[in-house]
Design a protein around this nucleic acid. Sequence first.
DNA 1: TGCGGGACATTATACTATAACATTCAAGGG
DNA 2: CCCTTGAATGTTATAGTATAATGTCCCGCA
Lengths: 158, 158
Amino acid sequence: MRPHDHGDCIRRVLDEAERRASEDRVNFTPVRRHALEILLESHAAMPAYGLLKRLDEDGFGSQPPVAYRALDFLMEQGFVHKVERLNAFVACMYPDESHAPAFLICRNCRSVAETCVSPSPAALLREARAAGFAIERSVMEAEGLCRACAEEGGAPCR
Amino acid sequence: MRPHDHGDCIRRVLDEAERRASEDRVNFTPVRRHALEILLESHAAMPAYGLLKRLDEDGFGSQPPVAYRALDFLMEQGFVHKVERLNAFVACMYPDESHAPAFLICRNCRSVAETCVSPSPAALLREARAAGFAIERSVMEAEGLCRACAEEGGAPCR
DNA sequence: TGCGGGACATTATACTATAACATTCAAGGG
DNA sequence: CCCTTGAATGTTATAGTATAATGTCCCGCA
């Protein structure tokens, strides 16, 4: 992950989410908003039970459905993606664009860089058409080493 | 999934696995081989505990490590892939080629068609390079409706 | 013969996710 | 104003996925 002004980065996404939520008349409740804020704190993927722990500490309840319901909502709205490879969740960096997310997952520090590939890569679309398969969503997950971790023990990405 | 001679399909993959295993001097033990056979029975993804049940019925033991150890081996050797989206496993249809697997996952019948995309799609490689990220493996998972299920209640794919 | 390593057995436990049902509360129609 | 309705949340229980840790067996080899 390239260094960046993370405060800006959070604010930008949060504002966009706020805007989209009110526009779509969906209910951006405190627990949902706070869950998104927590996920935005870093670009690392966070497990559901990690999020739950944070939500609990902040007074939102301690039972699994608290976290999973917030996550379900945020994913439906496209504010959060699940990184299947890690069974963990990250805030979407492009909440304003329709896209098929692609993740660069660092196996060392678990940071997750999201880059969008076009809705679905052309090669895959071709294959799918040939097989008579109708793609509804797709995701790409690549595992490897991020720049910081490759630079030998460099500070973990933020 | 297009109709095909599944007997041939199984034999072909099993032979190739056998060949590769002896070539690489790895130990293709009965439980490992049988696990692969079970996964080859259909192109649907099978959960670890489903595989475990089958292995148990066939006399290979009933504890989770039985299944997970066999799966770990088969994945290391590239004979089996994990479909993260389903927490389930499928036999690889291209055990003789190095590839980044791409899955077309039917949300209705859970059939999984594997198609290989080149080691990593060009667009993603470009993004990764720009971010200083070194990709080690990647996978693409697309969800949708397979031909059989799209043809309204058609027989589930085999 | 002894040793080293891979495979397997066994027990226990950690982690991930959802089902099912009760409660609350706000918006809208009669 | 009251009632209905539905979304959001609270609460309890349980299902499903995966690994840790330790010990045993057996085979190849010095």
